[in-house]
Structures are given as C-alpha cells and as structure tokens.
Design a protein around this nucleic acid. Structure first.
Length: 461
DNA sequence: TCTGGGGTCCTAGGACCC
DNA sequence: TCTGGGGTCCTAGGACCC
C-alpha cells in the first residue's frame, strides 16, 4: 500500500502545509530536509502502533501475514474484537465489535486470544526507542505515546525528521506505526488518525484552525457518544463550530472542562507532555458465557479475581484502602459497591471475606449475574508498607470474641503465615505461569469466561 | 445480531465537623 | 427549639479512552 503513496506530499484541507510523507523509503528521501519549512515553537508527536496486537501476531506467525487476523474473545461467549489486522478490516471488522458479528463478516479469519506478555515486551522495546530520542515521552497506552520534540528540546532537529527516524527504528522491530505531528497534543492525536498504517501527517504551526475546523466533534479525544449527542442537539457539529461556541453552552456539555475542550477544538490546548506513570487503581473483571445464579459460584469468582488483584498489587508494591466490586445483571444494568478499609492492604486472604459482605448489598438469590469485577484503589506512597487489615481486637468486635466467632476466620489469619503462603504461591506462578497454583474455588468457573483481550494501560509498566 | 476488560476523571449527594 | 454555610471525606454512577 505504501507504493501508491510513494513520493506523495499532499496538502491537507486548509492547513498551510500538511504533509503525508511516504514511509517505504523513509530512511532517506534525498533532499526532503531542504523541502521542509522551518518549525517554530512547540512540536508534539503522537506515535500510534498500527493494529498492534494483530501485527505482533503476524510477525510471530509468518503464515498469518497477508491474512485476516483477529485478536479477541470467543463469539459464543460474549467476546469482542480487541484488535484486527488490516486484511480483516477490509471485511468491515473493527475493534470493540462483538466477536459474533466479526465472524459473520469474515468467516475465514484467523482468531487468537492474544499473547499479552509478548505485546508488553514489544511495547517496552518501542517505548525505549522513543525515550532514546528524548525523555519527554508520555505513554498513554500499550500502543500509543506522546513525544515532545520541540526543536529546543531535540537538538534543534526538525520534528518531521525525528518522526521519520522513529518510524524507521520501529519498523526494524517488525511492526509499524503512524505518527501525527502538531503544536499540541490534540492536534497530534487527530493528525495521527488521518493516515494509517505507516502514515506521517503534519499540521504546521498556524494551520490548526483550518486543519481541525471541518472535522466532526467526535474526532476529538474527550468527545464520546454522550457529548456528541448533546452538542448536536445544540447545533454544534464540527470542531470549528465548537471552537466558536459560547462557553456557557459548552459548560452544559463538559462541565468544568468546557474551556479546555474548546481550546482543544481550536488546536490551542497547551496541556504538556507529562511523564507520569503513577498507578491509581488495579482491577479485574470477568464476563461469563453463562450467567451465574448460585452464590457459591459468585463467591468463587470473586475469590479468583480478588487473588489476581492481590497478586498484581504485590508485584507492583502497592497496598490500597478502597476495595470495590462491580456487578452486571443479565439485563446489563451495572451496580458497584466500594468500601474504605481501616488499613491499606495487598492481601486477598484478608479482604476476600469483605467481598462476600459487599456482595450482599447488590445481590440476592434469584438474580442472574453476567459480569463481576474486583478492584482496589486509594494508594498513597506511605501505604506501601504492609499492615494487617484488621487487628485481633477489630476482628473480635466484628465477629464476636467467642469461639464461634473466631472459628469463622480464615485458617491463616496469622499475618506472617499468610505472607509466607502468598510469597510461595507468587513465586510458583512467576516460575510456572498463572495456572501453576490453584485453589479449589478457582476451578469452579473455569471455561465460563469470554477469553477477551485487553489493552491495559497500567499493566505494561 | 448484540456489545470485553483495563483504566482515568468528573459529578452529585450524604455524612460529618466546625 | 430550630437554624446557616463551608469544607472534607466517602460512595455510587457514568462518560470516556485504548
């Protein structure tokens, strides 16, 4: 596909200079540097890996190259498409589409649940390339990052040349990326979407209004289905109209973000590239192919997810104080319950009984459960130090200090023994994989999940 | 043919304190 | 006996992103 673009330098609607630069020969277009108008002021890249998961699969399975590949969940288990190759997109398959629909559109596609450790590894290598260019890298997901390449920051080198070098270095790893270049993050983001795969789209300083003006508001990051509907109802359809809209009108749609969103629509939002990787929450969810109706099955699922969350907390060295569960009923309505803990913890053996208590607030016998989730939030740096969830006195107060009350407690309530057990099972799972150690409850719902894939922004760090 | 799983951020209301 | 307003914490829900 790059052949048709080879050598093309085209002008984008209204922008003084907006180039699509061909990627097939990007290692050196003779004289390109001389053709580029000088760049004044800030320059930000948005680097977006093309069909990332599917591209890695095609890299690792040579037989899959040139064929429709779909990474996602099972069609008969409520699964959806996570990522699909461009060959599959030709059939109309898209991300987030129900897997059953994708199967009808493209019956011969190659399906895989994905290999997330491999994606994380590839992503880390690519982010390393970006950080080798400049430390001013803001990773926004496993396959996207902003890079501040303002000439004052990168040896006065032209931003377009930096972008072309990044594309060349990424391709050496066997995958490709599209890059948008602009004076702000939102301009770079929109530019990166205009030409995929292997595209390089540049909006020069001063061209923002002409570049963004005709685009639909939905193209702007931060405008979803609800905001789009609210804007349309008020006669605002394009980014140009949004940039000119009354702030009071926008406040009814965006609340306190109205001014910021209007600046974005005008390409004038100055939010900086931020190197910030602080994790705010850790959670795990499961959608079931068959709705759960038995309390024992629901508790087993909560215990399984609680254990996964605990293990990830320990791996990250985090302890949280806000425990939450999420539940979706068979009619797809969703409820959540959260509870503030007395002490931060990363120990599922301590908090799993609380999950069962919280369940009582949103579930009664007879209710069918389609999805369950367990999450932990409320981290503070000083909370990383481990503490027991409850003291014996608090447990006595909760459950009664008599023999019957004490007998209800987990057999391993002794903190040191608990931590020993957790450390041992973590070590086994590190060595032999997640399936190496299972408790009885973890087997109950086996083979009843969607097997879907994810792009978890916190998990590759 | 029917919608996943991982996150972040915002809003609104109630409890509580002064 | 009834009453205020502001600040903070907590909870639930929802919009949005990849």
């Amino acid at each position: 596909m790059s052949a048709s673009r080879k050598g093309r330098i085209s002008r984008l609607a209204g922008a003084p200079m907006a180039y699509h630069v061909p990627m097939s020969k990007h290692a050196g277009i003779p004289g390109l540097e001389a053709l580029l108008p000088p760049w004044e002021g800030p320059a930000i890249l948005l680097v977006d890996l093309d069909a990332f998961f599917a591209s890695v699969e095609q890299l690792d399975h040579p037989g899959w190259r040139g064929k429709p590949v779909i990474v996602g969940g099972d069609a008969d288990k409520h699964g959806v498409v996570s990522t699909c190759s461009y060959e599959a997109r030709a059939f109309g398959v898209r991300s987030a589409m129900p897997a059953s629909m994708a199967q009808r559109l493209c019956p011969d596609a190659i399906w895989t649940h994905g290999h997330h450790d491999r994606y994380r590894q590839m992503s880390s290598a690519i982010m390393g390339i970006l950080r080798d260019e400049t430390p001013h890298v803001q990773q926004v997901s496993i396959d996207e990052a902003f890079v501040d390449v303002s000439p004052t920051r990168v040896n006065a080198e032209h931003p377009v040349l930096v972008a072309r070098r990044i594309q060349a270095r990424v391709e050496e790893l066997g995958v490709t990326c599209s890059i948008g270049v602009g004076t702000t993050k939102s301009v770079a983001k929109i530019a990166s979407d205009m030409d995929k795969p292997r595209g390089l789209t540049v909006c020069y300083p001063g061209g923002e209004a002409a570049f963004l003006g005709p685009l639909p508001v939905r193209d702007l990051s931060g405008v979803g289905p609800a905001a789009e509907a609210a804007l349309t109802a008020r006669g605002v359809r394009t980014l140009g109209e949004m940039a000119a809209a009354d702030e009071a009108l926008l406040r009814r749609v965006f609340g306190k973000n109205a001014a910021m969103m209007r600046a974005r629509a005008a390409g004038a939002d100055e939010s900086p590239v931020e190197v910030d990787d602080e994790v705010k929450s850790v959670s795990n969810e499961m959608t079931f192919a068959r709705d759960l109706t038995e309390r024992a099955d629901i508790e087993a699922a909560l215990a399984t997810m609680g254990a996964k969350v605990g293990r990830r907390l320990r791996r990250k060295g985090l302890a949280g104080r806000t425990l939450s569960i999420r539940i979706r009923y068979d009619d797809r309505t969703t409820r959540s319950v959260q509870r503030r803990l007395a002490h931060p913890t990363d120990d599922e053996l301590a908090y799993t009984p609380l999950l069962y208590e919280m369940l009582d607030e949103v579930w009664r016998p007879g209710i069918k459960v389609r999805l369950l989730g367990v999450g932990m939030a409320g981290f503070k740096p000083e909370d990383v130090v481990q503490e027991a969830l409850f003291t014996d006195e608090e447990l006595d107060a909760r459950e009664g200090g008599d023999e019957a009350g004490r007998a209800k407690r987990p057999a391993l309530k002794d903190e040191a023994r608990r931590r020993g057990l957790l450390a041992a099972t973590d070590a086994l799972k590190d060595k032999f994989g997640e399936g190496a150690v299972r408790f009885g409850h973890e087997l109950r719902n086996e083979s009843n999940t969607t097997g879907s894939s994810t792009k978890n922004p916190a998990d590759y760090k």
